[in-house]
Design a protein around this nucleic acid. Structure first.
Length: 312
DNA sequence: GCACGTACGTCATGTACTGG
DNA sequence: CCAGTACATGACGTACGTGC
């Protein structure tokens, strides 16, 4: 039969009717008045094409179909009740799923080592899959379930998704010494821009445009971690995410300085599909990300450049 | 956002039956 | 025969989905 024609509540009434063999008693049991129960019985009779309960004198008797349903409906409803009631306590140690986390190389650099350590220690059976992820494609990847949680900087493309801020970072100027100290000398140099899609407009270009200025971008690339290596041994200047600049540049004999113009910092957030918000495993994974990010923020060197330049 | 139809509830009452 | 009990039915109200 077509289940869409059936109101599940009707089955609950049916169960009570078949066990109580009384419309009044069945109604009391399921919280309906006698007429409502009688009406439900009428609908069941029409739906199943059988009278189910037949009155003789004062008592109601089950028809053969009623007897058969009495045997079958109760166990079926009990299974349904158990399925709906089941909400086992979440135990990360027992988590054997694959956790798919999307991120770019910057997010991987600042968060992944700590995240992996936490997962190995707390959920040793879980498998982690790190996937390429970008804000522009976030909604599609999350809708499709390709990625369970993504790391992204706030921006268009995240509408309708849930998010939780993880960490803040700033921008630092990186180049071969000496670093330009004025905006004029900054603009005189050729620039490198990290741009996921090859566009030539980034945070620096927007800040310059506000002052009717522009810079000369000679190289764009999509990888944050590769950028310092390209600056090494060239006259190029890069304005890079602070965490990457401060960690990698010194080993390459590059200088890290405050950019000579005011730049807003940025927030890296965890983003996910709202259908996963209440999932215990997903909530736990988000918590691990948040705690890994908190550790990262706490470990930031005190000598980090200020978020705003001296010119601001 | 509103009008309309449908489903389903309650209340009041009808009907069938039993037992004193 | 009549009071009591139990199910069925009609009138009406409300919630909700649907189409404009």
């Amino acid at each position: 039969m077509n289940l869409s024609a059936l109101d599940l509540n009707l089955l609950v009434v049916l169960e009570a009717l078949l066990e109580e063999r009384s419309v009044t008693a069945a109604g009391k049991r399921v919280g309906l008045s006698q007429p409502a129960t009688s009406n439900a019985l009428g609908r069941l009779r029409a739906l199943l094409g059988d009278r189910l309960l037949v009155r003789r004198g004062r008592a109601l008797f089950l028809t053969p179909r009623g007897e058969q349903l009495r045997r079958d409906v109760r166990p079926a409803l009990d299974r349904l009740r158990a399925a709906l009631a089941r909400r086992p306590a979440f135990d990360p140690a027992a988590l054997g799923d694959e956790l798919r986390v999307g991120m770019n190389d910057y997010a991987a650099y600042v968060l992944l080592p700590r995240l992996v350590r936490r997962l190995r220690a707390r959920a040793p059976r879980a498998r982690l899959a790190v996937l390429a992820f970008e804000t522009r494609d976030a909604a599609r990847a999350l809708d499709a379930g390709e990625v369970h949680v993504g790391l992204a900087v706030e921006g268009p493309g995240l509408a309708g998704l849930e998010s939780r801020p993880l960490l803040r970072d700033d921008f630092a100027l990186v180049c071969q010494p000496p670093a330009p100290r004025t905006l004029r000398s900054f603009l005189a140099r050729p620039h490198l821009l990290v741009s996921p899609h090859g566009g030539r407009v980034g945070v620096v270009d927007r800040a310059l445009a506000a002052q009717q200025l522009e810079r000369d971008v000679h190289v764009t690339l999509p990888h944050f971690l590769m950028a310092p290596h390209l600056l090494s041994g060239t006259d190029l200047i890069g304005v890079l995410a602070g965490a990457v600049a401060r960690d990698i540049a010194p080993a390459l004999k590059l200088v890290v300085a405050r950019p000579p113009l005011a730049l807003p910092g940025f927030t890296l957030s965890a983003v996910w599909h709202p259908r996963l918000t209440d999932d215990p495993a997903h909530a736990w994974l988000r918590e691990q990300l948040a705690e890994a990010a908190a550790e990262q923020q706490a470990s930031r060197p005190a000598s980090a450049p200020a978020r705003r330049s001296r010119d601001a």
